[in-house]
Simulated assay, not measured.
Amino acid sequence: MNMKQRGISFIGVLFVVGVLAFAGVIAAQVFPTLIEFQAITKAASKAKEGASVPEVRSIFDKAAQIDDIKSISGKDLEITKEGEKTVVAFAYNKEIHIGGPAYLLLKYTGRSK
């Protein structure tokens, strides 16, 4: 009886575990930026209720202080009118250091609803 072994080798298991660990580390660093993006979107939606540009920026800055938003401030907002509605738009970049000279660049853009 000549039985052939089937399955993955120990080196294969180490490789798969290494790739999953690397992906987990990157995901753990990206997740807080996604939470911050949601907080920024919520603050922009709240800020659009302001009557003037300085008031919109002030409302955003107050919400940013409460939600601990550090990536963007009220002065970085683009505030426009579309008909009778105020629209608050924003864009910013986040860099995540991977190792050595390598960085992961995340570009976030959004606007109030």
Rank of each mutant, 00 (worst) to 15 (best):
G24N: 14
K62V: 00
S73V: 07
K75I: 00
D68C: 01
R6D: 08
V19L: 12
G74E: 01
V56L: 12
K4A: 07
E36K: 04
I66R: 03
K70Y: 00
A43I: 01
A64G: 04
G12A: 13
I96M: 09
S9T: 15
G50I: 06
T80N: 11
N2H: 08
T86C: 03
T80F: 04
M3K: 14
D67H: 12
L14D: 00
K113V: 01
T33R: 13
Q5V: 08
F10I: 07
V88Q: 01
V25F: 15
R6W: 05
E82R: 04
I11Q: 13
A102H: 01
I72W: 07
A47D: 03
K107C: 00
V56T: 10
A102R: 00
E78M: 08
V16N: 10
A23L: 13
Q5K: 14
L104E: 10
E95K: 10
M3T: 09
I40W: 03
K46W: 05
T80G: 03
A44M: 04
E82N: 11
A91L: 07
T41W: 05
K48T: 00
E84G: 10
F37L: 11
G24L: 15
A27N: 13
L14G: 03
Y92M: 14
I72A: 06
F10Y: 11
L20I: 05
V53H: 09
K75L: 06
A63N: 07
A43Y: 02
L77S: 05
K70A: 02
K42C: 02
A47C: 08
A91W: 09
D68T: 10
G100T: 01
I72E: 06
